[in-house]
Design a protein around this nucleic acid. Structure first.
Lengths: 222, 222
DNA sequence: AATAATTTTTAGATTTGTCTAAAATAATTT
DNA sequence: AAATTATTTTAGACAAATCTAAAAATTATT
């Protein structure tokens, strides 16, 4: 089934609010979507008629099984595009959201399957949020800053805490990017600096401060 | 200035029809866009009010300077996305059009600039059509089939005449893809087969039949 | 040049998604 | 528990993009 961009935005927003509160109410959705309560009610009727939500007048609403599945498909598309924009086109992670908001509505399944493959089936987007898989399952991966990764264990770089020019310059120099495989060879207690190895590159050393701002997740978790 | 997806589709279609006839008439645009003449008239009024077309009632219409520039921006986006879908995601060129029709309306300038760079500023899309540059200039490049490329001259693969499984298998085997730099080292008159060299790969030989179905354009033309 | 045929435009309706203002319902306060 | 306040829904309107059917203008035909 296909949905309009507007319907998809509502589905996505309801999904987001569901996380925090059991039943979602009209006003909070209106605030979240920067629209009026009356518009929300109108759309709720439509989403109900399309069997995406559980909705009783005046009593709040939530996505049903079908609605949740749809939400995860949209979120998957959004996060894959964000990953693409950052890792392939080199955009800053704090700039990609509005563009991904547009790209996420392009609805070809084949496109998304291929994009996913092309990107190496990433599990985490550049903001550190998990990317649902094709079945709509959210990976549960704990992320740790690089200074907390046990020595000798490999991690995949998922995000960095800031994308200042200075930070990017340094990451670039070391060849560290989102998706990089990284292993801590040795950590020096004296100043917190780390000797690290990035997949096919020679080992190098980074400061403890840098390490605190680079996040990785456990490679091994399925 | 920003335009709706619908306005952009009209602009693009008018541009396409202008090539064939001086003045475009309502009916042919309606046929081309698979819509009714009345809908076309409605949109013409809007495009005129937005100063994109020259339009006198009952006398036909055409894009003005501004409209042409806009059309070329849309076509540029469309063809860059097609190039992306084929070369990066491995889709067949005969499948990419409808997806590019959606992607072309995503309107970030920064996105397109980066996409263009990422793709290596391609000049020709996978259907063999030229890609307008950022200034809206259409490159004029003659394409020749590989068997007509002079020996020792390099060409860039722009398109292939069919994308059957068999063809793709062979191209894959030889490491030939759209955008590949290719040089003919020697051609054998006996059977038309060619010894060729692809950028960083060892030389290899392909049949004359294959060569007839691979199109390249002249590397050197600015 | 008058009539017929074709093309284009207008008039009015429809759908989607939005809005404001008023009415209905629920929650809170006294 | 009655009154006040807050939330939600309805009613009616609007803009964008489309449509059908009828009217207007142009082109072709006799």
């Amino acid at each position: 089934m296909k949905f309009s961009a507007s319907e998809e935005n509502y589905i996505k927003s309801i999904y987001g609010l569901q996380g925090k509160t059991e039943k979602v109410n009209t006003n909070s959705l209106a605030v979240h979507m920067n629209t009026r309560a009356a518009s929300v009610t109108d759309m709720l009727k439509k989403l109900k008629s399309k069997k995406l939500i559980e909705y009783k007048k005046y009593y709040g609403f939530r996505l049903n099984e079908f609605g949740n599945r749809e939400a995860l498909r949209i979120i998957r598309r959004h996060r894959l595009w964000e990953f693409f924009l950052v890792t392939k086109l080199g955009m800053n992670w704090d700039k990609v959201h509005p563009i991904a908001e547009e790209l996420e509505h392009v609805s070809s399944n084949d496109l998304i399957k291929r994009l996913d493959n092309y990107l190496g089936q990433p599990k985490i987007d550049p903001h550190g949020d998990p990317i649902p898989d094709a079945q709509g399952k959210m990976p549960v991966l704990k992320q740790v800053s690089l200074d907390n990764l046990p020595t000798k264990k490999t991690g995949i770089v998922s995000s960095v805490s800031s994308q200042t020019h200075q930070m990017m310059e340094m990451l670039n120099h070391y060849g560290i990017g989102i998706g990089s495989q990284i292993k801590v060879l040795k950590s020096f207690d004296f100043d917190g600096s780390l000797q690290i190895k990035i997949s096919k590159q020679p080992a190098c050393t980074i400061s403890g401060q840098a390490a605190q701002n680079i996040f990785v997740y456990d490679d091994q978790e399925k």
